[in-house]
Nucleic acid binder design. Structure first.
Length: 169
DNA sequence: CCCTGATTCGC
DNA sequence: GCGAATCAGG
């Protein structure tokens, strides 16, 4: 129920730039959809501060005509771009290497590191070949299963391995 | 997959 | 008026 004081806090929080879900959480008992709906009904949809989203048109409407089915004529397009990519001589290697260029396992960059990406460093950070493992990490772990074993070895085992230099990657 | 707001429409 | 479902996008 939208009591007056709840509407007030809604207005306030929305004006402060909080997201609909955050406001919903704070108010309690409502979903972000409810908040958004209310915001619209109050006519204060546009954020005064910040955000400059490029809202696009949409919604075909429920009673839209069947219309033409999208046709499988798209395959050629995909093939074309694939071909283009293939014949591309390929970029001259960047002279300077930025942090964002540091590759993770499979060609991704450091920008792609997430909680679920193995952050085990491989190679010398100064070398061009340096990269991160990038495999999917174990839940809650910064490393994949393989590297987690290396990282979290029991002290005794690690000592042995260190001496045998098995620990190096 | 997480999130954002926007819109529609049955209630 | 309300808000779930859905849409479009980051």
């Amino acid at each position: 129920m939208w009591t007056e004081d709840r509407v007030e806090t809604l207005k306030k929080l929305w004006a402060e730039g909080l997201s609909a879900s955050q406001i919903a959480k704070q108010l309690g008992g409502v979903t972000r959809n409810a908040v958004i709906g209310k915001v619209h009904r109050l006519g204060l949809s546009g954020r005064a501060t910040s955000n400059r989203p490029s809202r696009a048109r949409q919604q075909p409407a429920a009673a839209a005509a069947p219309a033409a089915r999208p046709q499988p004529a798209q395959a050629s397009e995909a093939r074309e771009s694939a071909a283009l990519a293939k014949e591309k001589p390929l970029p001259a290697p960047a002279p300077q290497r930025r942090l964002t260029d540091v590759a993770i396992g499979d060609g991704a960059t450091v920008l792609s590191l997430t909680e679920h990406t193995c952050k085990w460093p491989i190679g010398d950070p100064g070398e061009e070949s340096f990269h991160f493992c990038g495999d999917r990490s174990a839940p809650g772990m910064p490393y994949c299963a393989e590297h987690a074993r290396l990282a979290y070895q029991p002290v005794q085992a690690r000592k042995r391995n260190d001496r045998r230099r098995d620990f190096a990657v």
